[in-house]
Design a protein around this nucleic acid. Structure first.
Lengths: 249, 249
DNA sequence: ATACCAATCTGGACCTACCAGATTGGTAGG
DNA sequence: CCTACCAATCTGGTAGGTCCAGATTGGTAT
């Protein structure tokens, strides 16, 4: 599913640049230091800086004007979803508000996804979901972490909606909370509870019971977010660098 | 809003690589040629290829395994939303199914956005929307294209939902259809009709009338997509390279 | 048929060099 | 003092080369 992978110089440059933007509170339209200066500052080659800038460009965060400079296209808070995924992978923290929004958005999107899934799911979709639950179940029995399997399952439900855009939309929402997920699923109790929910999901989709499915999404996601929030608070408050760097449901 | 900008070698390399993947119908897990071979093939330096690969990596399309090779992380169809934006900017075509999905997803997401906007909008949100409509109106009077202004307005409505994630989600949906939008709004009749809708949107949000707002979204978006579809067919069928490379509402 | 090793290939990173347009600071002219 | 202008400087874009060390692989010896 998701690969951990250690930071290359390119990724490091991405991280440093984002940190620079945060630290200096740069706003839309502001200019960044030149590539040469960034490469000095970060202690990497201009090539690595350029790789990083290419990424930030693709994320619509920066804009490189030839013979002129590098400018912020959007404030950090207004960048794309993928930028959040990358920030999570780089262990850059999110604020409480972002988490609230992610939680809310996920409920909305996933509720619709499952409604469509109930209406349109094929037998093949159903079989795939059953396979995934079976696998999930055996991993829970074996006391293994199921963070990846959980994402797989939820995306498979979304795929049953027959709308690829919805899947593409939910994906980053899951990926940006990968680390939390990892922690969340370290508890056997939670794994069992989650398994039960998944089994019920499959049942409702099999029955094409939209109403029950939608209600289940709300309960499932909300309880998960609550749990994570409690978990995070239990860890004590990690001051500036926060705890919201990866987990959710 | 969106910048046209001519293709740099880096972007060209991104485009060529995506075309390569399409042409060879590469699937998840398949291996791409080495960086050196790609740079030969594309006639650009390895630096440019590496920039391109950094972007594709960020989009979760490829994965670079050190000392080993470049592998496809996801099939093109399963990549993120931002990858669609980039494909649109590169004039790479979409298929009919993707368009259907985008249309459906936009109705779903925007319906929820406007419902939340009705419930939560502040006076500042309302003022901003009114400003935007005023500007929109004057441009329509002056017979100017309002493609950018339309995006601005819709995103401002989304912003009134007070959920930044929803805004971030809708953004790529608009950006990937920028070229169509451009064509669509070349018609003065459509501009006037769109303006009327926008005025009604503001009224419903001011009244916090969720029901009417939701209905209006459906009508507004669906009629726009129908129009575009008709437009596209009128152009004759551009064979392999299709017409869905940028327009929508 | 198998186990093993060396030549080869691959991505990662660094460095230097050039280009041409954008920017800017100082100077000459009013 | 202000303005107009020009040249030095800075900037991103691109090219080309080098070195490194681990992954891969094909052939060899057992």
């Amino acid at each position: 599913m998701t690969v951990p992978q250690q930071a290359s110089e390119g990724s490091r440059a991405v991280k440093r640049t984002i940190e620079f933007i945060r630290h200096h509170r740069l706003q839309k339209g502001d200019r960044l230091p030149s590539e040469r200066e960034l490469s000095d500052r970060f202690g990497v080659t201009r090539s690595s800086v350029r790789e990083a800038l290419a990424v930030l460009d693709a994320l619509r965060l920066t804009e490189r004007r030839p013979k002129s400079g590098i400018f912020l296209r959007n404030a950090l808070e207004d960048s794309g979803l993928d930028s959040l995924v990358i920030q999570a992978n780089l262990d850059l923290p999110f604020d409480e508000r972002t988490m609230r929004d992610v939680s809310e958005a996920r409920v909305i999107f996933e509720t619709h996804a499952i409604r469509l899934a109930c209406a349109r799911r094929t037998d093949a979709d159903l079989n795939r979901l059953r396979e995934l639950v079976a696998n999930y179940s055996s991993r829970v029995q074996a006391e293994l972490n199921v963070a990846n399997e959980d994402v797989e399952f939820h995306l498979a439900m979304a795929a049953a909606s027959q709308n690829a855009i919805i899947v593409r939309t939910l994906t980053p929402l899951f990926l940006m909370s990968f680390q939390w997920r990892q922690k969340y699923f370290s508890s056997p109790v939670i794994r069992r509870r989650s398994l039960a929910d998944h089994q019920e999901f499959v049942a409702t989709i099999a029955d094409r019971d939209e109403t029950r499915a939608a209600a289940l999404v709300q309960k499932h996601v909300h309880s998960a977010f609550d749990e994570v929030r409690a978990l995070a608070e239990g860890n004590g408050q990690p001051e500036s660098h926060n705890q919201w760097a990866g987990l959710d449901e």
